[in-house]
């Protein structure tokens, strides 16, 4: 995957967090691919589905997607491409 950035600089004062605990955005994304997620857009619309993949722009491919507006399902898509600039957050719908 085409990820953008290295982890924040470590200035030698603190040890890095244990690698088993998912920390950085990249680690989070690795852990969440293939899982059910909630993608909220800045408009407040939610997309719930299985995360197929994503890229460094936060462009997202979802499977079995449901569109939720004000808590109601307004659309269903087999597959959906979501352009990354609209994404507010990606949240794990099941605990990791």
């Amino acid at each position: 995957m085409d990820e953008q950035t290295p982890p924040p600089p470590d200035h030698g004062s603190t040890p890095p967090p244990p690698p088993s605990v998912s920390g950085s955005p990249t680690d989070f994304l690795k852990g969440v691919v293939g899982k059910r997620v909630i993608v909220r857009l800045t408009s407040g619309v939610d997309y719930r589905g299985v995360l197929s993949c994503l890229d460094g722009y936060m462009n997202i491919a979802l499977e079995q997607t449901e569109e939720h507006v004000n808590g109601m399902v307004t659309n269903r898509y087999g597959d959906a491409f979501i352009r990354g600039n609209n994404v507010l957050y990606i949240s794990a719908a099941e605990s990791l």
Binding site: T5, S24, D27
Partner: peptide
């Protein structure tokens, strides 16, 4: 839990 240079942030118990 973590963040990157864009200040994308990973949060838990949100």
């Amino acid at each position: 839990l973590g963040f990157d240079d864009f200040v994308n942030m990973v949060l838990e118990d949100v």
